[in-house]
Design a protein around this nucleic acid. Structure first.
Lengths: 217, 217
DNA sequence: CCACTGCCGTAACGTACGGTACGGTACGGC
DNA sequence: GCCGTACCGTACCGTACGTTACGGCAGTGG
């Protein structure tokens, strides 16, 4: 018996995690053209073990996506001294993190696979990526937004609407262009710039000081 | 010899257009699992003809995507009496059209296939969808934005930045959620509401009357 | 030393599907 | 009437890949 992490239902041995990392790498390289044989070769394991551990190809893909999702559990920001500066910083850091994840090769590859599978009967991958992508982002951001509203720094009725506007201002056409194969290299500098712009635009729309703060561009 | 439309390089006979419509329908139903045999059966044509007309499977998919793209050539809005009302109406109509297309089953299916293929060697579909999706939207919208700037109704430095912000405000997380299989039904009413909201938010950010027009929400 | 277990490596099986070949039919020109 | 062309329907071929089966090897417990 090897060491195993307990993640809810599924407990993965270290060996299995190595296999899933190999699958992840192949998913980045070859996309959905990944074959069971290639995973076995890359991970130096037998196909018999793959089927024993993950059931079938879909099970392997599902486990791979979940494994990646379990790795990116983000640290929740929870400032006690809350003011406009910390709200702004929180939003901007959030936007920056999100753009970094979004433009990473792993995120692009997983989203591609999940999107492709959402078209056929197997909706599992789409749901998982949805749950660990946009929905997770919403769950993480909404407390910050509500804190902003409670402290009078933000004005909005529906938290979800505010979140989705922020999402749009941050992501814009970046994700769909990356998924469609557009060369669109985001440098750290451009991400910081975009995060700042999105945050300021969001504050201009939902901030309490809308009239005062935004003079001319 | 049948009647043929001349679309640049490729001239499609009526028969071939029917075949591509059948392929389109199957793409919506089965996604990338579409087979040459299924297309032949649905269109009541022989596989031999498919290969003769389109070369191979990728050629068929490419022709199908281009055929759909050729059908959605939109009417360019070109108002001569230009003021804030017509700018607002133009933006809102634009947003509404775009959301309607985006949430259609055909758009979702084609984007799914193109995204899937962008992961492998064949980037053609991704480029085509990119060209007829976001890029076409940009080409259509930018004249309106520049007209708005020239008449002093809008303030921005980079037209592209303004466009991408509008894109984000309109699309938000709708497209990625649809592609990932999220049930997210957009009614005509909700689309009109979102178009109005996005337009007003855009005007609040880039409109000349930013300080005056936006009191409270 | 010996069973047992877990796993690797590889061979083998079944099938689905892309691509090709071929017979049969309708039609227009000569 | 005869030929060429275009096309349908179907049978066929080759291959890739998911899945299964099997032989061998290392570690462990008795």
């Amino acid at each position: 018996m090897q060491l195993a992490v307990d993640v809810g239902e599924n407990a993965l041995t270290e060996r299995q995690k190595d296999v899933l990392d190999a699958a992840l790498a192949l998913l980045v390289e070859a996309g959905d053209a990944l074959t069971m044989t290639s995973v076995a070769r890359r991970a130096s394991c037998s196909k018999e073990s793959l089927y024993k551990w993950f059931g079938d190809r879909d099970g392997l893909l599902t486990a791979t996506v979940q494994w990646q999702a379990s790795k990116v559990r983000a640290v929740p920001v929870n400032p006690e001294a809350f003011n406009l500066a910390s709200l702004t910083a929180g939003l901007q850091r959030f936007a920056s993190d999100w753009l970094h994840v979004l433009s990473g090769t792993i995120s692009v590859a997983l989203n591609r696979v999940a999107v492709g599978h959402a078209g056929s009967d197997k909706h599992d991958l789409g749901v998982i990526v949805l749950e660990n992508g946009p929905f997770a982002m919403a769950r993480r951001l909404k407390p910050l937004l509500q804190l902003g509203r409670d402290t009078g720094l933000l004005h909005f009725n529906e938290t979800d609407e505010a979140f989705r506007t922020f999402f749009g201002l941050v992501v814009r056409d970046v994700q769909i262009r990356l998924l469609l194969g557009d060369r669109l290299e985001l440098t750290d500098a451009s991400i910081e710039r975009d995060s700042l712009r999105a945050t300021q635009q969001f504050l201009a729309l939902y901030g309490a000081q809308t009239e005062a703060a935004e003079g001319g561009h």
